[in-house]
Write a protein that binds this DNA or RNA. Sequence first.
DNA 1: CGTGGAGTTGAATACGATCAACACCGGTGG
DNA 2: CCACCGGTGTTGATCGTATTCAACTCCACG
Lengths: 175, 175
Amino acid sequence: MFEQILNQIAVSRNFKKGEVLQSAGQESSKGYFVKKGLLRSFTIDDNGKEHIYMFASEGWILSDIEKEVFGNKTVLYIEAIEDSEVYIFNPGQIYQLDLQHEYTDYMISSLMKRIGVMQRRILALMSASARERYESFLQIYPDLQNRVPQKMIASYLGITPEALSKIRGQIIRNK
Amino acid sequence: MFEQILNQIAVSRNFKKGEVLQSAGQESSKGYFVKKGLLRSFTIDDNGKEHIYMFASEGWILSDIEKEVFGNKTVLYIEAIEDSEVYIFNPGQIYQLDLQHEYTDYMISSLMKRIGVMQRRILALMSASARERYESFLQIYPDLQNRVPQKMIASYLGITPEALSKIRGQIIRNK
DNA sequence: CGTGGAGTTGAATACGATCAACACCGGTGG
DNA sequence: CCACCGGTGTTGATCGTATTCAACTCCACG
Protein backbone atom coordinates (compact mmCIF):
# COMPACT_ATOMS: atom_id res chain seq x y z
CA MET A 1 0.00 0.00 0.00
CA PHE A 2 2.84 2.31 0.78
CA GLU A 3 4.32 1.23 -2.49
CA GLN A 4 1.77 2.88 -4.77
CA ILE A 5 2.28 6.24 -3.12
CA LEU A 6 6.01 5.90 -3.10
CA ASN A 7 5.82 5.53 -6.84
CA GLN A 8 5.11 9.22 -7.11
CA ILE A 9 8.35 10.40 -5.60
CA ALA A 10 10.60 7.42 -6.16
CA VAL A 11 12.46 5.87 -9.02
CA SER A 12 13.03 2.15 -9.24
CA ARG A 13 16.49 0.71 -9.81
CA ASN A 14 18.14 -2.67 -9.83
CA PHE A 15 21.38 -3.48 -8.05
CA LYS A 16 23.55 -6.52 -8.26
CA LYS A 17 24.87 -8.42 -5.30
CA GLY A 18 27.77 -6.49 -3.83
CA GLU A 19 26.90 -3.16 -5.40
CA VAL A 20 27.20 -0.10 -3.16
CA LEU A 21 24.17 2.20 -3.25
CA GLN A 22 25.62 4.85 -0.99
CA SER A 23 28.89 5.54 0.80
CA ALA A 24 29.75 7.27 4.05
CA GLY A 25 31.08 10.81 4.02
CA GLN A 26 28.70 12.15 1.41
CA GLU A 27 26.80 15.42 1.46
CA SER A 28 23.47 14.03 0.35
CA SER A 29 21.57 10.89 1.20
CA LYS A 30 18.60 9.00 -0.17
CA GLY A 31 15.95 6.73 1.18
CA TYR A 32 15.80 3.16 -0.11
CA PHE A 33 12.66 1.08 -0.11
CA VAL A 34 13.42 -2.57 -0.82
CA LYS A 35 10.96 -4.01 -3.28
CA LYS A 36 12.89 -7.22 -3.79
CA GLY A 37 16.17 -8.54 -2.48
CA LEU A 38 18.24 -7.67 0.55
CA LEU A 39 20.34 -4.67 1.59
CA ARG A 40 22.56 -3.88 4.52
CA SER A 41 23.72 -0.61 6.02
CA PHE A 42 26.98 -0.41 7.93
CA THR A 43 29.74 1.87 9.18
CA ILE A 44 33.48 1.46 9.00
CA ASP A 45 35.18 2.48 12.23
CA ASP A 46 38.59 4.03 12.87
CA ASN A 47 40.23 0.60 12.76
CA GLY A 48 38.72 -0.21 9.40
CA LYS A 49 36.20 -2.65 10.83
CA GLU A 50 32.68 -2.92 9.51
CA HIS A 51 29.68 -2.79 11.82
CA ILE A 52 26.30 -3.64 10.38
CA TYR A 53 23.57 -1.32 11.52
CA MET A 54 20.59 -2.87 9.77
CA PHE A 55 19.49 -5.47 7.28
CA ALA A 56 16.56 -4.58 5.03
CA SER A 57 14.60 -7.17 3.10
CA GLU A 58 11.36 -6.79 1.17
CA GLY A 59 9.19 -3.98 2.45
CA TRP A 60 11.77 -2.29 4.64
CA ILE A 61 13.27 1.15 4.26
CA LEU A 62 16.92 2.04 4.71
CA SER A 63 18.24 5.55 5.11
CA ASP A 64 20.94 7.38 6.99
CA ILE A 65 18.91 9.17 9.63
CA GLU A 66 22.04 10.67 11.19
CA LYS A 67 22.47 12.67 8.04
CA GLU A 68 18.86 13.88 8.10
CA VAL A 69 18.67 14.66 11.79
CA PHE A 70 22.06 16.09 12.62
CA GLY A 71 22.89 17.54 9.24
CA ASN A 72 26.33 16.01 9.09
CA LYS A 73 27.71 13.94 6.29
CA THR A 74 26.47 10.40 5.85
CA VAL A 75 27.92 7.84 8.22
CA LEU A 76 26.43 4.73 6.68
CA TYR A 77 27.34 2.64 3.68
CA ILE A 78 24.48 0.87 1.97
CA GLU A 79 25.12 -2.24 -0.08
CA ALA A 80 23.18 -5.00 -1.81
CA ILE A 81 23.61 -8.46 -0.27
CA GLU A 82 21.49 -10.02 -3.01
CA ASP A 83 20.43 -8.81 -6.43
CA SER A 84 17.82 -6.25 -5.46
CA GLU A 85 15.12 -3.99 -6.81
CA VAL A 86 14.91 -0.74 -4.90
CA TYR A 87 12.80 2.41 -4.88
CA ILE A 88 15.02 5.41 -4.34
CA PHE A 89 13.51 8.61 -3.00
CA ASN A 90 14.50 11.88 -1.44
CA PRO A 91 13.80 11.83 2.31
CA GLY A 92 12.69 15.47 2.32
CA GLN A 93 9.87 14.70 -0.07
CA ILE A 94 8.28 12.40 2.45
CA TYR A 95 6.70 15.38 4.13
CA GLN A 96 4.97 16.57 0.98
CA LEU A 97 3.79 13.07 0.33
CA ASP A 98 2.25 12.79 3.73
CA LEU A 99 0.42 16.05 3.73
CA GLN A 100 -1.10 15.24 0.39
CA HIS A 101 -2.24 11.80 1.18
CA GLU A 102 -2.64 11.78 4.88
CA TYR A 103 -0.61 8.66 5.26
CA THR A 104 0.53 10.12 8.50
CA ASP A 105 -0.58 7.27 10.66
CA TYR A 106 1.32 4.84 8.52
CA MET A 107 4.45 6.98 8.67
CA ILE A 108 4.26 7.47 12.41
CA SER A 109 3.56 3.87 13.20
CA SER A 110 6.38 2.61 11.02
CA LEU A 111 8.79 5.05 12.64
CA MET A 112 7.60 3.79 16.00
CA LYS A 113 8.05 0.21 14.90
CA ARG A 114 11.60 1.04 14.00
CA ILE A 115 12.17 2.66 17.37
CA GLY A 116 10.76 -0.45 19.01
CA VAL A 117 13.22 -2.65 17.14
CA MET A 118 16.10 -0.37 18.06
CA GLN A 119 15.01 -0.27 21.69
CA ARG A 120 15.27 -4.05 21.83
CA ARG A 121 18.64 -3.98 20.18
CA ILE A 122 20.09 -1.40 22.57
CA LEU A 123 18.82 -3.23 25.63
CA ALA A 124 20.22 -6.48 24.23
CA LEU A 125 23.62 -4.96 23.51
CA MET A 126 23.78 -3.73 27.08
CA SER A 127 22.46 -6.70 28.98
CA ALA A 128 22.80 -9.88 26.93
CA SER A 129 25.87 -11.99 26.19
CA ALA A 130 26.99 -12.63 22.63
CA ARG A 131 25.39 -16.06 22.72
CA GLU A 132 22.08 -14.73 23.98
CA ARG A 133 22.05 -12.05 21.31
CA TYR A 134 22.73 -14.65 18.63
CA GLU A 135 19.96 -16.93 19.84
CA SER A 136 17.42 -14.15 19.92
CA PHE A 137 18.56 -13.03 16.47
CA LEU A 138 17.74 -16.48 15.16
CA GLN A 139 14.30 -16.31 16.68
CA ILE A 140 13.47 -12.82 15.46
CA TYR A 141 14.92 -13.15 11.94
CA PRO A 142 14.89 -16.86 11.09
CA ASP A 143 14.84 -16.12 7.36
CA LEU A 144 17.98 -14.00 7.42
CA GLN A 145 20.06 -16.87 8.74
CA ASN A 146 20.06 -18.45 5.30
CA ARG A 147 20.35 -15.32 3.24
CA VAL A 148 23.20 -13.63 5.07
CA PRO A 149 26.78 -14.89 5.40
CA GLN A 150 27.79 -15.64 8.95
CA LYS A 151 30.38 -12.95 9.21
CA MET A 152 27.70 -10.35 8.56
CA ILE A 153 25.52 -11.76 11.28
CA ALA A 154 28.50 -11.48 13.60
CA SER A 155 28.97 -7.90 12.52
CA TYR A 156 25.31 -7.19 13.23
CA LEU A 157 25.58 -8.74 16.67
CA GLY A 158 28.64 -6.66 17.46
CA ILE A 159 31.12 -9.54 17.69
CA THR A 160 33.89 -10.98 15.52
CA PRO A 161 33.27 -13.80 13.02
CA GLU A 162 35.57 -16.04 15.06
CA ALA A 163 33.55 -15.47 18.20
CA LEU A 164 30.32 -16.35 16.43
CA SER A 165 31.86 -19.48 14.99
CA LYS A 166 32.87 -20.60 18.47
CA ILE A 167 29.44 -19.83 19.87
CA ARG A 168 27.88 -21.99 17.18
CA GLY A 169 30.22 -24.87 17.89
CA GLN A 170 29.42 -24.51 21.54
CA ILE A 171 25.66 -24.55 20.94
CA ILE A 172 25.92 -27.72 18.88
CA ARG A 173 27.96 -29.53 21.52
CA ASN A 174 26.02 -28.26 24.53
CA LYS A 175 22.76 -28.86 22.72
CA MET B 1 4.82 24.84 21.26
CA PHE B 2 4.07 21.17 21.56
CA GLU B 3 3.17 21.88 25.14
CA GLN B 4 0.01 23.86 24.48
CA ILE B 5 -1.45 21.12 22.36
CA LEU B 6 -0.42 18.41 24.75
CA ASN B 7 -2.47 20.20 27.36
CA GLN B 8 -5.59 18.94 25.67
CA ILE B 9 -4.92 15.27 26.15
CA ALA B 10 -2.51 15.28 29.06
CA VAL B 11 -2.72 15.79 32.77
CA SER B 12 0.10 17.37 34.70
CA ARG B 13 1.54 15.72 37.78
CA ASN B 14 4.46 16.22 40.13
CA PHE B 15 6.79 13.47 41.22
CA LYS B 16 9.43 13.47 43.87
CA LYS B 17 12.98 12.28 43.41
CA GLY B 18 12.97 8.51 43.45
CA GLU B 19 9.29 8.06 42.68
CA VAL B 20 8.41 5.38 40.14
CA LEU B 21 5.98 6.52 37.45
CA GLN B 22 5.65 3.16 35.77
CA SER B 23 6.89 -0.39 36.29
CA ALA B 24 7.76 -3.22 33.91
CA GLY B 25 5.31 -6.04 33.37
CA GLN B 26 2.20 -3.92 33.16
CA GLU B 27 -0.63 -4.18 30.71
CA SER B 28 -0.94 -0.48 29.96
CA SER B 29 1.60 2.25 29.43
CA LYS B 30 1.60 6.03 29.28
CA GLY B 31 3.62 8.71 27.58
CA TYR B 32 5.50 11.17 29.76
CA PHE B 33 6.46 14.65 28.64
CA VAL B 34 8.96 16.23 31.00
CA LYS B 35 8.05 19.82 31.74
CA LYS B 36 10.56 20.22 34.52
CA GLY B 37 13.04 17.88 36.17
CA LEU B 38 14.66 14.65 35.02
CA LEU B 39 13.44 11.12 34.46
CA ARG B 40 15.09 7.86 33.51
CA SER B 41 13.76 4.70 31.92
CA PHE B 42 15.44 1.36 32.55
CA THR B 43 15.05 -2.40 32.52
CA ILE B 44 15.99 -4.98 35.09
CA ASP B 45 17.55 -8.06 33.53
CA ASP B 46 17.45 -11.71 34.57
CA ASN B 47 20.30 -11.15 36.99
CA GLY B 48 18.55 -8.27 38.68
CA LYS B 49 20.79 -5.65 37.12
CA GLU B 50 19.49 -2.31 35.96
CA HIS B 51 20.20 -0.98 32.47
CA ILE B 52 19.27 2.59 31.71
CA TYR B 53 17.66 3.03 28.37
CA MET B 54 17.18 6.80 28.32
CA PHE B 55 17.40 9.95 30.35
CA ALA B 56 14.75 12.59 29.73
CA SER B 57 15.14 16.16 30.85
CA GLU B 58 13.01 19.20 30.04
CA GLY B 59 11.19 18.91 26.72
CA TRP B 60 11.77 15.20 26.16
CA ILE B 61 9.22 12.43 26.01
CA LEU B 62 9.55 9.02 27.59
CA SER B 63 7.41 6.03 26.80
CA ASP B 64 7.72 2.28 26.44
CA ILE B 65 7.59 1.88 22.70
CA GLU B 66 8.03 -1.88 22.97
CA LYS B 67 4.65 -2.00 24.61
CA GLU B 68 3.06 0.09 21.88
CA VAL B 69 4.71 -1.61 18.94
CA PHE B 70 4.81 -5.27 19.90
CA GLY B 71 1.77 -5.31 22.14
CA ASN B 72 3.52 -7.09 24.97
CA LYS B 73 3.67 -5.97 28.52
CA THR B 74 5.83 -3.03 29.44
CA VAL B 75 9.54 -3.75 29.71
CA LEU B 76 10.65 -0.39 31.07
CA TYR B 77 10.59 1.16 34.48
CA ILE B 78 10.29 4.93 34.58
CA GLU B 79 11.52 6.86 37.58
CA ALA B 80 12.16 10.43 38.64
CA ILE B 81 15.82 11.29 39.20
CA GLU B 82 14.92 14.78 40.37
CA ASP B 83 11.67 16.30 41.60
CA SER B 84 9.80 16.60 38.33
CA GLU B 85 6.70 18.02 36.71
CA VAL B 86 5.35 15.75 34.00
CA TYR B 87 2.52 15.72 31.48
CA ILE B 88 1.04 12.25 31.31
CA PHE B 89 -0.88 11.22 28.22
CA ASN B 90 -2.22 8.17 26.50
CA PRO B 91 -0.02 7.25 23.53
CA GLY B 92 -3.01 6.23 21.42
CA GLN B 93 -4.45 9.70 21.59
CA ILE B 94 -1.46 11.13 19.82
CA TYR B 95 -3.00 10.15 16.53
CA GLN B 96 -6.19 12.09 17.14
CA LEU B 97 -4.16 15.03 18.25
CA ASP B 98 -2.18 15.01 15.09
CA LEU B 99 -5.04 14.76 12.71
CA GLN B 100 -6.76 17.62 14.38
CA HIS B 101 -3.88 19.97 14.51
CA GLU B 102 -1.66 18.84 11.75
CA TYR B 103 1.37 18.75 13.93
CA THR B 104 2.47 15.83 11.87
CA ASP B 105 5.73 17.34 10.78
CA TYR B 106 6.66 17.96 14.37
CA MET B 107 5.76 14.42 15.35
CA ILE B 108 7.63 12.85 12.48
CA SER B 109 10.73 14.94 12.89
CA SER B 110 10.90 14.29 16.62
CA LEU B 111 10.55 10.56 16.03
CA MET B 112 13.35 10.81 13.48
CA LYS B 113 15.47 12.75 15.90
CA ARG B 114 15.01 9.98 18.38
CA ILE B 115 15.97 7.37 15.80
CA GLY B 116 19.07 9.42 15.02
CA VAL B 117 20.09 9.42 18.67
CA MET B 118 19.50 5.68 18.91
CA GLN B 119 21.44 5.05 15.72
CA ARG B 120 24.45 6.75 17.26
CA ARG B 121 24.06 4.77 20.43
CA ILE B 122 23.87 1.42 18.68
CA LEU B 123 26.88 2.14 16.54
CA ALA B 124 28.79 3.31 19.62
CA LEU B 125 27.87 0.21 21.61
CA MET B 126 29.17 -1.96 18.79
CA SER B 127 32.35 -0.15 17.86
CA ALA B 128 33.55 2.03 20.72
CA SER B 129 35.32 1.06 23.94
CA ALA B 130 33.81 1.93 27.30
CA ARG B 131 36.17 4.86 27.64
CA GLU B 132 35.27 6.23 24.22
CA ARG B 133 31.58 5.92 24.95
CA TYR B 134 32.04 7.77 28.22
CA GLU B 135 33.97 10.60 26.63
CA SER B 136 31.41 11.07 23.90
CA PHE B 137 28.64 10.96 26.50
CA LEU B 138 30.29 13.90 28.26
CA GLN B 139 30.42 15.84 25.03
CA ILE B 140 26.85 15.15 23.99
CA TYR B 141 25.21 15.55 27.40
CA PRO B 142 27.50 17.84 29.41
CA ASP B 143 24.63 18.93 31.65
CA LEU B 144 23.66 15.42 32.70
CA GLN B 145 27.07 14.81 34.19
CA ASN B 146 26.16 16.97 37.18
CA ARG B 147 22.55 15.95 37.52
CA VAL B 148 22.96 12.18 37.35
CA PRO B 149 24.83 9.95 39.82
CA GLN B 150 27.81 8.18 38.32
CA LYS B 151 26.44 4.71 38.68
CA MET B 152 23.52 5.69 36.46
CA ILE B 153 25.86 7.03 33.82
CA ALA B 154 27.67 3.69 33.96
CA SER B 155 24.38 1.91 33.57
CA TYR B 156 23.53 4.06 30.55
CA LEU B 157 26.90 3.32 28.99
CA GLY B 158 26.41 -0.38 29.50
CA ILE B 159 29.23 -0.91 32.00
CA THR B 160 29.53 -1.43 35.76
CA PRO B 161 30.01 1.46 38.19
CA GLU B 162 33.44 0.08 39.11
CA ALA B 163 34.55 0.10 35.51
CA LEU B 164 33.47 3.71 35.07
CA SER B 165 35.28 4.70 38.24
CA LYS B 166 38.47 3.13 36.94
CA ILE B 167 38.09 4.83 33.59
CA ARG B 168 37.73 8.17 35.30
CA GLY B 169 40.82 7.60 37.40
CA GLN B 170 42.67 6.60 34.28
CA ILE B 171 41.58 9.73 32.41
CA ILE B 172 42.75 11.99 35.24
CA ARG B 173 46.16 10.33 35.43
CA ASN B 174 46.71 10.00 31.69
CA LYS B 175 45.46 13.54 31.18
C1' DC C 1 26.50 10.69 65.99
C1' DG C 2 25.87 6.40 63.10
C1' DT C 3 24.10 4.24 59.16
C1' DG C 4 23.71 3.20 54.42
C1' DG C 5 24.46 4.46 49.74
C1' DA C 6 28.04 6.18 46.40
C1' DG C 7 32.43 6.02 44.79
C1' DT C 8 37.27 4.17 44.74
C1' DT C 9 40.71 0.64 44.56
C1' DG C 10 42.71 -4.00 44.12
C1' DA C 11 42.90 -9.14 42.95
C1' DA C 12 40.99 -12.79 40.53
C1' DT C 13 38.09 -14.18 36.77
C1' DA C 14 35.55 -14.43 32.32
C1' DC C 15 34.35 -13.24 27.89
C1' DG C 16 35.35 -11.84 23.61
C1' DA C 17 39.27 -9.96 20.56
C1' DT C 18 43.34 -10.83 18.19
C1' DC C 19 46.54 -13.50 15.66
C1' DA C 20 47.62 -17.49 13.19
C1' DA C 21 47.01 -21.89 10.94
C1' DC C 22 44.11 -24.73 8.42
C1' DA C 23 39.89 -27.03 6.03
C1' DC C 24 36.41 -26.32 2.75
C1' DC C 25 34.24 -25.02 -0.99
C1' DG C 26 32.89 -22.27 -5.58
C1' DG C 27 34.46 -20.13 -9.04
C1' DT C 28 38.01 -19.15 -12.93
C1' DG C 29 41.31 -19.97 -16.17
C1' DG C 30 44.65 -23.09 -18.12
C1' DC D 1 38.55 -31.53 -16.46
C1' DC D 2 41.57 -30.27 -13.14
C1' DA D 3 44.48 -27.00 -10.68
C1' DC D 4 44.52 -22.91 -8.52
C1' DC D 5 42.87 -19.28 -5.95
C1' DG D 6 40.35 -16.15 -2.75
C1' DG D 7 36.92 -15.90 0.41
C1' DT D 8 34.40 -18.14 4.28
C1' DG D 9 34.30 -20.52 8.29
C1' DT D 10 36.63 -23.38 12.02
C1' DT D 11 39.82 -24.09 15.74
C1' DG D 12 43.49 -23.10 19.09
C1' DA D 13 46.73 -20.00 21.93
C1' DT D 14 47.29 -15.75 23.81
C1' DC D 15 45.95 -11.15 25.16
C1' DG D 16 43.05 -7.27 26.89
C1' DT D 17 39.05 -5.17 28.59
C1' DA D 18 35.49 -5.17 31.57
C1' DT D 19 33.14 -8.08 35.36
C1' DT D 20 32.96 -9.89 39.78
C1' DC D 21 33.89 -9.89 44.52
C1' DA D 22 35.63 -7.67 48.40
C1' DA D 23 37.43 -4.12 51.38
C1' DC D 24 37.57 0.56 52.42
C1' DT D 25 36.54 5.81 52.42
C1' DC D 26 33.54 9.49 52.31
C1' DC D 27 29.59 12.00 52.79
C1' DA D 28 24.58 13.11 53.12
C1' DC D 29 20.95 12.44 55.85
C1' DG D 30 18.36 10.41 59.38
